[in-house]
Simulated scan of single mutants.
Amino acid sequence: MKEFVVYTAMRILLFLASFGIVVGIMALLFDGTYNLLLAIVLAFLISGLASFFLLDRQREAFARRVETRAAKAAAAFEERKAREDAESD
């Protein structure tokens, strides 16, 4: 759970920083005005690309955690299945 919270928080912070930078640049270039929808779209694109490179370690930790939990769940399922098969014989 910790890995999910860390990765998600960092993605949100990266988006907010990108949004602030995009709005700041647009405001400077267009005399204090900016298009909110365009700023959001650009911030999503920039933060998505940046997170691909900057958050690789956090993404890998999250993926390992998910893989571990899935393996435990699969093992528990197989154990219950084998127990039921043994009881029915």
Rank of each mutant, 00 (worst) to 15 (best):
F4P: 00
F62M: 15
A70F: 14
F19A: 05
A86Q: 05
D89W: 07
D56R: 15
E84F: 12
F15Y: 05
R11P: 01
R57F: 08
I25L: 09
E3A: 07
G24Q: 03
N35S: 06
F4Y: 10
A73C: 06
N35T: 01
R65I: 04
V22T: 05
A50I: 07
L16S: 07
E79F: 08
L13G: 15
A50F: 06
D85Q: 15
S47C: 05
D85K: 14
I46S: 05
F44C: 15
A86G: 00
V22W: 03
A82G: 02
A61R: 12
S47R: 04
A50E: 02
E60G: 00
S51V: 00
A39M: 00
A70I: 14
A75P: 01
L45E: 04
D89N: 10
L29H: 05
A17E: 03
A73I: 12
L29N: 09
I25Y: 04
S51N: 01
A86D: 04
L36D: 10
V23I: 06
L28Q: 10
F4C: 06
A82D: 08
I46G: 02
E3M: 01
A76N: 08
A76F: 08
V22A: 04
G20Y: 02
D89L: 11
L49D: 07
I40E: 00
A73R: 05
L45M: 13
S47D: 05
T8I: 11
L38N: 04
R59S: 13
A82N: 08
M26D: 11
F62K: 07
R57H: 09
V41C: 05
E79Q: 11
L49P: 06
G20F: 02
E60Y: 04
L55A: 03
L55S: 03
R59D: 07
